[in-house]
Amino acid sequence: MSTALSLHQSRKRKNGVMMALCVVAAGIGLAWLALILGALIYKGLSGVSLAVFTQMTPPPGDAGGLLNAIYGSIVMTIIGIVVGTPIGVLAGTYMAEYGRFSRLTTIVRFINDILLSAPSIIVGLFVYELLVRPMGHFSAIAGAVALSILVIPVVVRTTEDMLNLVPNALREAGTAIGAPRWVVIRSVAYRAAMSGIVTGILLAIARISGETAPLLFTALNNQFWSSNLNAPMASLPVTIFQFALSPYEEWQQLAWTGALIITLTVLGLSIIARSLTGRREDR
């Protein structure tokens, strides 16, 4: 009787300990997020001023802003999205519509999932070998191409997932009134899956707007204003990298401010993307 009771006690105790550890784990995870965001807001906010958005990156020891870096980031992100999205959407369309049961789809899905989490610095090396070396110089185009390669897998994945969620009855209804396959896809499937596809694009923007590694040796960096796509261009992440590792206080402060801008952009985009589709599976 007493051994049975003590066994019960020890099982209960063990359960209590393990569950407490799980709560602690969740606490650690959340506390870490709060710590990082807290430090970022504390250090970044003190440097936010109009000058950040209106002045160029300064020489060491001077005050200045991040205008050319922000401009470069926006330009390269836009080109990356414009190049990457159509390819990604079309590939996802093939996988969910024309080739849903083909062998090619299985292989592409597998390779795409690997590209999705492949190290982004590898993409940088690839574009360096592909564009920078033949052209003989670093350029914003190369940076944008590197970003578009990162966009493709994200968009492929969400497009395929979202098109697979469209009920087949809708497609059958379209086909029954005599619409050819591509009209059904364009006017029925895309329309039904629109919010999901847009979510994928937003997530892709969120992903590339903070990417540094693929830009380091494709777009390089530029201390000055440049809108020439065939020349090195500044970007926010690379500028943060350079400024944060410098010994100059003004540069470090700009790095923090830039980091705050990127984080708020990325968090904002992810929250919008999330609210567009409600609960979304994200791997």
Partner: peptide
């Protein structure tokens, strides 16, 4: 979703 450079600077 936080970019890795933020973890780096932090």
């Amino acid at each position: 979703g936080i970019p890795s450079i933020i973890y780096g600077i932090w």
